[in-house]
């Protein structure tokens, strides 16, 4: 899952990026509103974390103009806690908001929740046969056993399971699982897929040659 952080406070953006990356998200950052809007419109993000006080283009303007084109879930970070500010934000098209200062755990939970809501299946625990994907604890179980995966591998499993029954193209995977600074080549993806098969069984992921991958529902 790929997340965009639009935050001009570099120390805050850095900490958020690292936290989200450790959770297995691909994370892009933008330092101002104009850059943020451009990125949010150019890529298929699964969630956007948007600060309100931004140089060049105010967070509200980013939200308004993003909503003209896309329905990407947006979590707004605001330093104002008046009710009317929050109402105005939700009316502008924000999906959720957090008032600074916030607990990191809460932010991560809200990002997870936003991403789940954007999926066809919003349950936190997804099961396919013996395989269970816990999107809260971010672990995959086979029967009772936790299957060890790296954060990137887990993200791929989760992405495939969320889109089970659909053809997941390589482009989709790149768009959602890799951030813009990641220049891993496509054979890395093959390596991830083969490792997933080794742990969860060969039939778990089917390859459609030249098109992509499918996890059967």
């Amino acid at each position: 899952m790929r997340v965009l952080i639009v935050e001009d406070e570099r120390d805050l953006a850095d900490a958020l990026r690292r936290a989200l990356e450790e959770e297995g998200y691909a994370v892009d950052t933008a330092q101002d509103g104009a850059e943020g809007l451009h990125k949010a419109r150019s890529w298929e993000y699964d969630a956007v974390v948007l600060d309100l006080m931004l140089p060049k283009l105010d967070g509200r303007a980013v939200l308004t103009r993003l909503r003209e084109a896309k329905s990407t879930p947006v979590l707004v970070l605001t330093a104002r806690d008046a009710i009317q500010d929050k109402v105005a934000l939700l009316d502008l098209g924000a999906d959720d908001y957090l008032t600074k200062p916030f607990a990191l755990g809460e932010l991560l939970a809200r990002v997870r929740s936003l991403i789940r809501r954007g999926c066809s299946d919003p349950r936190p625990m997804l099961r396919i046969g013996q395989v269970a994907v816990d999107t809260v604890a971010r672990v995959v179980r086979l029967g009772d056993q936790i299957v060890p995966f790296s954060a990137k591998e887990y993200a791929l499993v989760e992405f495939l399971v969320v889109h089970r029954g659909e053809l997941v193209t390589r482009t989709m995977i790149y768009e959602h699982l890799y951030d813009e600074s990641d220049d891993s080549l496509s054979n890395v993806l093959d390596v991830y897929v083969s490792r997933i098969r080794k742990r969860l069984g060969n039939d778990f992921v089917r390859t459609r040659r030249g098109e992509g991958y499918i996890v059967d529902a």
Binding site: E9, D11, A19, D81, T99, P101, F102, L104
Partner: peptide, 25 residues
Amino acid sequence: TGDVSHELRTPLAVIRTQVEQALRR
């Protein structure tokens, strides 16, 4: 007051997020 709270909340958010992120592992 609003401006002050805004200006204080942002550095507080930085501190809290940095500390929590550092303490996660």
